[in-house]
Each structure stands twice: as C-alpha cells, then as structure tokens.
Amino acid sequence: MLEARLEQSSVLKKVVDAIKDLVQDCNFDCNDSGIQLQAMDNSHVALVAMHLKTEGFALYRCDRNIALGINLVSLQKVLRAAQNEDVMTLKAEDSPDALSLVFENSENDRISEYDLKLMDIDQEHLGIPETEYGATVKMPSAEFQRICRDLSLLSESVAIEATKEGIKFSCTGDIGKGAVTLRQNPNVEKPELGTTIELQEPVALTFSLKYLVNFCKASGLSNTVTISLSNEVPLLIEYEMEHGYVRFYLAPKIGD
C-alpha cells in the first residue's frame, strides 16, 4: 500500500496547477523512489515529467509499484479543499479504486478526509536519453514567464538563439516584431536572480509560444528555471524543487 505525507499541501497543489492545462488524465507512478509522472499532451508535441522524491515526504511508505490513474481536473477540485499549510496524507491500497487524501491544519483541530475515484489509464511512455545540450541557460523563472507572455502577444512562434553574446528570444507577427536578449549576469549574492549561460555550441531553434506560456504556469515551483537547448532536438525546461522536479519537453518547429 501507499502512505505518503507532505508537510505542506502547497507542494502538490502547485504541481497540479503547473501541469493540468497540458495533460488531463495521467498515472501517478508510486514506487520506492517516490511519486513520478510522465505524460504527453494530446497532440504529442509536449511532454511533462515530474518526480516528487521520497526525501520530500515527512513519511513515505510504498511496498509495491502502484499506478494511480488520475484525472487532474478532479484532483484539483479535491486539492482546493486543502489549505496551503495543511499537512496532506495520501493513501491507497495495492490495486486501488480510489485515492484517499487527508488534510490536517497545523493547529491539529481540523481533519478533512476526501476520496478521489481512480481510473485505468493506458499511458504511453517515451524513452528520453541522457542528452548533452549545446546551451544551458539558468535564469529567474518570473523573467522567463514575462518574456514568453510578452512575445506571445505578437506571434505564435519564438526563435531562440544561444550564442556567446547571450540568449535571444525573437518573434515576428502581424503587428510587428520583438526581441529580448539576455546576457550572462551571475548574481553572487542572490544566485536565483542571476542569469548564467553555458554554451558548448551555438543553437538556433523555433518553438510554439502557446506551449512555453503553458509551461510557465510552473513558475511558482521554483525561483529559477533551467532551459536546455540543442539543435534539432526538443527543448528541456526544468523547474527544480527542493526534493524533486517538474520538466517539460517541447518538440521544435522546423522549416522556417
């Protein structure tokens, strides 16, 4: 059986908020390394991979591998009943029909108990090889979100170019064009506010802004985001948490 306790409900609430507009139904795979998820969007253009590691739980017990087939919209309805600071306990049997969720406030005088019906989901998994990326950019997640939102008002696509000059996001649309260039600018005192660029080779790729804006809903998970790029392969965007991560992969647009 599974028994997993999070000190703060906000962790799972933020993860679900981050991915629910990309995927609807997905398996939460529970095993002795924690709770993992890999799911593609309906169009098979983007993929989300999530891992909440056992170290992030105040209590974690999972005797066998259990797949929890969850509709994320339904899960979000239940999670709305949890306050951010509540302790959350997830429980499921070995072949569960339902996931039990218990929310307890810090004063220990309120216990909320919910059951979420589970579904059988036959999920496709992709094998993602370890990749040496040509360019890796670490920057404040809020800044990346702002750039994606601003450019998405002008165009459907963004060209991302990483060179030794910096990383440039540019787009062209009906009303005009726009570009933002970030130069390497490490912040010694507050590393989460700096921008670092590791460049093995120049990279130039084009991506759909609709998806990038969607990924930025994970900005609440981390102050920083890591963007990894190589020519002719999908982009990797990672939001690292204290004990886990949410990663998004996005196939490029080609033939500009």
Binding site: V45, L126, G127, P129, T206, A251, G255
Partner: peptide, 14 residues
C-alpha cells in the same frame, strides 16, 4: 510558416 514537429520524431515509445 514553420511546421510543428512531433516528440515521436525524437524519442522512442517504450
């Protein structure tokens, strides 16, 4: 107009 590629062009189904 650039064409949106599929993830299956890059990664194999397990």
């Amino acid at each position: 107009t650039p064409i949106q590629n599929d993830l299956s062009e890059y990664y194999a189904l397990l």
